[in-house]
């Protein structure tokens, strides 16, 4: 349940971005990027957001979450595959020499503020 602390940090960060842009309005929409291997549950993030956003400019904002997959490159069969979860064997040939890249993103991509 560390999603709660993540959403706390997220709300702080969004408010910082608004201050920087000199905006005091209401946030309509927020875009997040949470990679499949980030170990963060998107449902829990939404749940924590509904708990923590009230009373902040983010109250009622629509939360859009992109969930990029990771790429797994196999050094045995040279396959390059997209994966949803961490694997220690190549899904294609069963090889064990793998390089896994991406999928660990945890980003506040953008916020859309009422004009």
């Amino acid at each position: 349940m560390h999603e709660l602390s993540i959403v706390e940090a997220l709300i702080e960060q969004a408010q910082k971005e608004m201050d920087r842009a000199g905006h005091r309005g209401r946030v309509l929409r927020m875009e997040l990027v949470i990679g499949r291997l980030a170990g963060v549950s998107c449902d829990s993030v939404r749940f924590a957001f509904d708990l923590l956003a009230p009373g902040t400019p983010l109250e009622g904002a629509q939360v859009h979450i992109a969930e990029p997959k990771a790429t797994c490159r196999c050094h045995t069969c040279d396959a390059k595959l997209e994966i949803d979860e961490i694997t220690i064997r190549c899904p294609h040939c069963g090889g064990i020499e793998l390089t896994i890249e991406g999928g660990r993103e945890l980003l506040l991509q953008s916020i859309e503020i009422e004009d």
Partner: peptide, 13 residues
């Protein structure tokens, strides 16, 4: 207005 942040959520930590 859209602000593009593209920042790590746990940047403060």
């Amino acid at each position: 207005m859209k602000i593009v942040a593209a920042k790590k959520i746990l940047k403060a930590n």
